[in-house]
Design a protein around this nucleic acid. Structure first.
Length: 193
DNA sequence: CGTTTTTGACCCGCGC
DNA sequence: GCGCGGGTCAAAAACG
């Protein structure tokens, strides 16, 4: 049911733990929640890391962005061979009219559920690429239908199908595409380190 | 014709 | 043990 959405490179992960979201103006971030669970037995909750990464996008919205970094207490299975690689969760709450935003990856919906205290349904997506177990959960805020909560879980093993990377984005910038103008502005605001 | 969506069923952890 | 809330499976339908 997805309309023809051009693969917009609007999400980029840096090699560091910092993440830059040069989204378009359509996506007005209101809340960013990082839940990075380490595989270790680190049950600490680091509310504010030593290097707080503040991301502000959607300059037109005016509303600031909040970022929270958490640490999931993923207790190890105590098994010597158990490798709990799961533990990278990123929750983004944005104000968007579109339920699912195209982050450049191909997602396949595999479930739909209605949660308590929320009339809206919650959708479950999974990365289409085989071997990539990245999951994504999209939910509308019942109170404010204008807000959408997108939760990513996992790390992609492969690159974006559209081959969009931060450096390549500038190179492949299409000046004739007005929808990317704001993208360029975001890029200029966040120059590569 | 291959891939994705849909949708109810199933499953699992947890609290009672 | 059972029910509930939440997450996933899978078969058929729908899509391109």
């Amino acid at each position: 049911m997805n309309p023809s959405q051009s693969p917009s490179p609007n999400l980029t992960f840096l090699s560091d733990e910092k993440t830059i979201y040069p989204f378009m103006d359509n996506y007005d971030f209101s809340n960013l929640m990082f839940d990075v669970g380490e595989g270790g037995n680190n049950g600490l909750i680091q509310e504010e890391p030593s290097s707080p990464t503040t991301i502000v996008t959607g300059e037109s919205g005016g509303s600031g962005s909040a970022l929270t970094t958490l640490s999931k207490k993923e207790s190890t299975g105590s098994k010597d061979g158990e490798t709990k690689e799961v533990g990278h969760r990123v929750a983004i709450r944005t104000r968007s009219q579109i339920d699912v935003m195209d982050d450049g990856y191909k997602w396949r919906k595999y479930g739909k559920k209605s949660v308590k205290n929320n009339t809206n349904k919650r959708n479950y997506y999974k990365c289409s690429s085989e071997g990539c177990m990245v999951k994504k959960r999209v939910e509308r805020d019942g109170e404010n239908a204008a807000y959408v909560i997108t939760t990513y879980e996992g790390v992609h093993n492969h690159e974006s199908p559209s081959h969009v990377y931060y450096n390549d984005m500038v190179l492949s910038f299409d000046h004739d595409n007005p929808s990317q103008h704001s993208l360029l502005r975001s890029i200029q605001k966040f120059p590569p380190s």
